[in-house]
Each structure stands twice: as structure tokens, then as C-alpha cells.
């Protein structure tokens, strides 16, 4: 079985800007795939390359084994949930959802039936008669999802779909999206700048920076074994240790990553540092240690004793927690 999406050395340049730069990518059928990166890292351009809104400057794209470059969006069996939903303001919710079916020439009665079924799937039954302007952000998001899913796409593309929702709603939608993806078995490609979202939802994550993929892997791999300094810092804001500091802390003279939550403060710890700041995060407290001019973040679980700024503390970690990385930024 071919991959759902394949990128071979795909680049998309806008003038001198290399939005996407020689990206190789393979997404398996039925996978929940997240593209994670800061804004301007090329993840959305990659999504638009799959949708067909952008054409690659060079390279080759396949969707389920078929060449995609040069094929317009309307001939791709791929649907998108847009960041700001892009619902048609002049159509009511039912007509929005049924738009793809209407274009395909499905009869009015069947269209209405399928649109209502799709609205039920996203928990908005009976909302068909309303206009998009009368819905809340969360409801619009669900309509956008129903409008895409009603076409039973081979690949569903989601462009930061939860970005505009408040925290509570976002967490709820994360679970629903995951459940929906499992139930439908459709390949989901999800773009986000929120590492927590990517880690909690995706089967695999590609971390983007400056138009390139820095690392692809399961959330666990990405989190526990970041291959580059960027990935370590961007995903879970790990401590990125310079070769000097790693050596001083007893490791090889190489760049390394040490997760803040893996560091323990204990009196018999081998290393010492001075607390220079502490901030309360709710479920934990983050303190910043200074060791010979370099800083280290430590995440203390709530309930543990928090040292005052200025105090000298001893700290340690389990041997496996210090993860040595390559030289690549």
C-alpha cells in the first residue's frame, strides 16, 4: 500500500524566501500526523502543498501513490479545515456542509441527509438552518470539520484548527478529533505550533524549523530523544546544554538535552547551583539555577519545597535523562 502522502525533496520558494526547503516526508495511511513548528517554519506551506493551493518550486509530491504536482485543488480527494474556518457567509450551516456534495451533483434530499449526519457526528444536530455568523467559534470549527468530513476525503488537512479556541474547548476538541480520527480511519495531517497539542494527539510528529524538517518521530521519541538543539528547546522547552556545560556536569563534550522535570533537588546531589528565579505555574514551580554563568531550568512538582532565590542548592538526575545530541542546530 502506498503512503498517504509522500514528499521527495520538495521545495517551495517565494522569491528569495525558502518557505519549504528540500523536505522529505512520508505519512502512512490512517495516521494522525502532526506538523509542529513556530510560525514561519514552513508547516502551513507544506499543508497547502498537499491541498494544492501551492505548487512546489521543485521536488515531487504523491498522494496515495499518485503524482500531485500540477493537479489543481479541486481534483484532489483531500479536504481542509481552515485556520479561520472559511465558512461561506452567504450559506446556512447545512448548505455549507453540503457544499462539496452539491458540487459533485448529489441530489438535494440526499445532500440534506448527509449534511445532517455529518453535523450529528460533530455534535451539532439541528444547527443546519443557522448562518455561520450566528455560531460561536467552537461551533464554526465543528461546522468546518463536518464540511470537510462529509466528502470522506482520503486525507484530512487541519490548519491550526484549535488555535482560536479557549483552553477548555481546545482540550475537549483534541479528544474529539482523536476519537473521530480513530473511528473514521482517515489520514489526518494536523498543523500546529502548540507542542502539547502535537504530542497529545499525533501518532507521529514532524518538527519544522526554517522550512526544513528537523526531526520526525513518535511524540515519545521527539520528546525523549530530540536530535537537535532546536527540537529539544521547542518541544517541552528542554535545557539545552552547551558542550562545556555537559562536560562540567559529567557528560561527554557535546550538546545535550536535560528535561527540567528530570532534575531533582536533593541534598546529596553531585552538582550545585544558585537559584536566581522561581515562578509558580500551578501544577509545578519552575526555578532557574545558575551554574558558572549558564542557566538551567528545573521543574518542581507541586507540593515540594521551593528554595528562595539566592539559595545554593544541590541537584541530580538519573543517568539516562541526559540526552546527547548531534552538532546540528
Amino acid at each position: 500500500m502506498p503512503h498517504a502522502v509522500t514528499f521527495q525533496q520538495v521545495s517551495r520558494h517565494f522569491g528569495a524566501v525558502r518557505a519549504v526547503d528540500a523536505v522529505d516526508l512520508e505519512i502512512a495511511p490512517g495516521e494522525f500526523f502532526a506538523m509542529l513548528g513556530p510560525s514561519g517554519s514552513g508547516k502551513t506551506t507544506c499543508l497547502r502543498l498537499i491541498a494544492g493551493f501551492e505548487q512546489p518550486t521543485s521536488g515531487h509530491i504523491e498522494i496515495f501513490g499518485e503524482t500531485a504536482e500540477g493537479v489543481p485543488p479541486y481534483r484532489r480527494h483531500v479536504n481542509t479545515v481552515f485556520q479561520d474556518y472559511a465558512l461561506f457567509p452567504h450559506l446556512n450551516v447545512a448548505d455549507n456542509v453540503a457544499y462539496g456534495l452539491m458540487i459533485k451533483g448529489v441530489g438535494r434530499a440526499e445532500r440534506a441527509r448527509e449534511a445532517e449526519a455529518a453535523l450529528e457526528m460533530v455534535k451539532l444536530p439541528g444547527y443546519g438552518g443557522r448562518k455561520p455568523g450566528q455560531l460561536s467559534g467552537g461551533q464554526r470549527q465543528r461546522v468546518a470539520l463536518a464540511r470537510a468530513l462529509v466528502n470522506k476525503p482520503k486525507v484530512l488537512l487541519l490548519d491550526e484548527p484549535l488555535g482560536a479556541l479557549d483552553l477548555k474547548l481546545r482540550e475537549q476538541m483534541q479528544e474529539e478529533l482523536k476519537a473521530l480520527q480513530r473511528a473514521l480511519g482517515i489520514t489526518f495531517v494536523f498543523v500546529t505550533h502548540d507542542q502539547g497539542e502535537a504530542l497529545s494527539m499525533a501518532d507521529r510528529v514532524a518538527v519544522f524549523n526554517e522550512g526544513r524538517i528537523m526531526q520526525t518521530g513518535t511524540p515519545h521519541e521527539i520528546y525523549r530523544r530530540p536530535q537537535t538543539r532546536f527540537v529539544a528547546d521547542f518541544v517541552g522547552s528542554s535545557n539545552v546544554l552547551s558542550p562545556d556545560l555537559t562536560a562540567r556536569l559529567g557528560g561527554p563534550r557535546q550538546w545535550a538535552s536535560l528535561r527540567p522535570e528530570d532534575i531533582r533537588l536533593d541534598t546529596d546531589g553531585h552538582h550545585r547551583g544558585r537559584v536566581i528565579a522561581a515562578s509558580f505555574l500551578g501544577s509545578a514551580t519552575r526555578i532557574t539555577l545558575e551554574i558558572d554563568g549558564e542557566t538551567l531550568s528545573v521543574l518542581l512538582p507541586s507540593g515540594s519545597a521551593v528554595p528562595e532565590p539566592g539559595e545554593e542548592v544541590a541537584f541530580s538526575w538519573s543517568p539516562g535523562d541526559l540526552h546527547v545530541m548531534g552538532d546540528e542546530a
Partner: peptide, 15 residues
């Protein structure tokens, strides 16, 4: 007219 409505329409199969 937001240009992403044109994209959404094309995305949903409209020529």
C-alpha cells in the same frame, strides 16, 4: 471577500 473562501470552494471540489 476573503480569499480563503475561494480556496475552501476549490478544496471542496469546485472548479
Amino acid at each position: 471577500v476573503p480569499s480563503n473562501l475561494m480556496e475552501a470552494s476549490a478544496d471542496l471540489g469546485a472548479s
